[in-house]
Design a protein around this nucleic acid. Sequence first.
DNA 1: GATGAATGAGCTTTCATTCAT
DNA 2: TATGAATGAAAGCTCATTCAT
Lengths: 200, 200, 200, 200
Amino acid sequence: MVSRNRQESGKENLRQEIMDAARELFVAEGYASVSMRKIADKIGYSPTTIYLYFRDKSDLLHQICEQTFAHLAQNIKSIQQLSDNPLEKLRSGLREYVHFGLKNPSQYEIVFITPLPHQFESDFSESNGKVAFDTMRDVVTECVLDNLLKTKDVELISQTLWAGIHGITSILIKHEHFPFVERDKLIDNVIETLIAGTRA
Amino acid sequence: MVSRNRQESGKENLRQEIMDAARELFVAEGYASVSMRKIADKIGYSPTTIYLYFRDKSDLLHQICEQTFAHLAQNIKSIQQLSDNPLEKLRSGLREYVHFGLKNPSQYEIVFITPLPHQFESDFSESNGKVAFDTMRDVVTECVLDNLLKTKDVELISQTLWAGIHGITSILIKHEHFPFVERDKLIDNVIETLIAGTRA
Amino acid sequence: MVSRNRQESGKENLRQEIMDAARELFVAEGYASVSMRKIADKIGYSPTTIYLYFRDKSDLLHQICEQTFAHLAQNIKSIQQLSDNPLEKLRSGLREYVHFGLKNPSQYEIVFITPLPHQFESDFSESNGKVAFDTMRDVVTECVLDNLLKTKDVELISQTLWAGIHGITSILIKHEHFPFVERDKLIDNVIETLIAGTRA
Amino acid sequence: MVSRNRQESGKENLRQEIMDAARELFVAEGYASVSMRKIADKIGYSPTTIYLYFRDKSDLLHQICEQTFAHLAQNIKSIQQLSDNPLEKLRSGLREYVHFGLKNPSQYEIVFITPLPHQFESDFSESNGKVAFDTMRDVVTECVLDNLLKTKDVELISQTLWAGIHGITSILIKHEHFPFVERDKLIDNVIETLIAGTRA
DNA sequence: GATGAATGAGCTTTCATTCAT
DNA sequence: TATGAATGAAAGCTCATTCAT
């Protein structure tokens, strides 16, 4: 039942090990259904050990989310810096968002999909999640300033785009067995549809 | 302690009463956080009584979902029948999908969002959820036949649209506290953006 | 380990059974050191069962104390009613107090001796404990009105007397192995000394 | 997080530092409620360090009690030596007993009040507590020899007096929130009542 | 001499569920 | 049909303690 990988993993980053194990379990079974014991079992430590690294269960979840958000925001920024064309920056940012989700499904799920207890719902606006969203909105602003879009309501456009890319990301992650058309084609079509619908 | 409203409510169908109470609680507090006792208290019966009507807690949830799901398919169909214009049928169907999700967030979550214990894993493809999806695809087919869209790939278009409306529905449900623009305006914009991007 | 006495005890008063077991354990090991499991084991039920009769551990303790106080107050009153002479009423009340403690040592200990968590400390003034104390003070008042005592400070006298009878009661209970002189003689001497010292 | 005061305090005797911190915490929160971590935090060391000086938690308590107990016997003796008058020696001894208990309530509780795990059971008769009692009895003997008391039963008188002063000491400690009259006045009255009742 | 890392045992409490009636 | 009584299992969490360094 217990697979000890202390020696193997180099045991240096037990904290990260805990976060990884917890994230996967939270995604697989839901936050409320995952016990501290289950997490501990998964990494081969005692439940008590987790409390050496995290204040309590909700702190553990919180740290996981923040880490993922930071990761996402950073990726999007890096990608966007590769181009000067606002529209192209927008497109590449949207694409990176989806790819990030597909490359890190458990991280994406935990922050954007899995239903969490109410106490966590308000955290979003103060967290790195906001940073990631702001990154995208800044590019929308650029497009608006360049008169590239059919409306100047930056907030409305940004949220619309987010809804779209979150939609495709999450159904691809969650409904693995749905008979989707070819994955990249579908992603492209979603993004191009969103951009086309947003332009004149 | 609990004021019984059996006589008052005059309800004969205790089974339905239980489902209603449970549904409301699941929505308000989340499936995992609702105990059988809470449900029982809400309707003024003992917890034991619930087991006369439902095998266990998950059965109760399952019955609620199926019941509400029948409504989704039916609602979409009804709405679409109000118009002859294919594009209008498409628009009203998309809108109904979102509204249904927002009116029944707990059910929407359960089937489209939440990771469930494996017993429910395959439900989607066999459930009324699929029926609902097929309903939407049929209208897309109509639009394609009328040459209203920029591509004839019905499956690609349908899945793109579904991605979009699932996106807006799920972020509105999950990120309750995100500072969204006015809700109806956002929903409208998503749908119009999707349709505009799908047309010429 | 578990001695079931459900049938034997007539199982009617499980609530009282729990209180008795808990009282004895609290006295023997201290409130904080007694777990709900220990109490449950002692009566041969599961820990969960206790929660059918008491809100939580502190409620259980509270109920035990109140019951004992009521018992004590009632005994003192009954005894005092047997006489009309104020001084005799006082003497018989003091004696009954000591005898009550010695007849019900675990009950006496739990309310008057065992150190309890801070949350319980303020309860005393609002409880039946006050009733018992007031019973004694009323008789002191009678004595004062009859000019039988050397001072008229009713409160001071009452508390002094209480200190004395609590002292003899508690050392007789706690220091069983101390080489005391003959018990009744000692009790009598304490009470007579207190009364003599309180009179002119 | 904890400001170490090793250098600042300049204390060489960590052992004594631990005992002081522990004593204060035991008094404030009760033995069972004080964790080794709390003690360690208070002095700015790790919990592990305590085990370098004490076998375990109960050993720590034991050492504290013995240390303070030596003080009790010594204090009473010192006080009594200030007078030649037997009655005055008796009075000051009684007073010192009460004051000692109130100044060291946790130690007083441990030895005279609290039920202890059986390991401590026999401590009283072998401890400095008995020495203190003997000190008091010797003065009673002096008083009897001087014909100052109404009876010559030294043991009976001594135990009566002990009951009285233990009574006032323990109720003042345990029933902190009882609406006592002014503390020193009450203590004085108890002692004067005991002495008056013991004389003529 | 002192500690960081880790744990087994135990805590109070809640839960879904069963069973006799 | 409905329930009161009871429970096994498990939850999150804290504690005294150990061990390698």
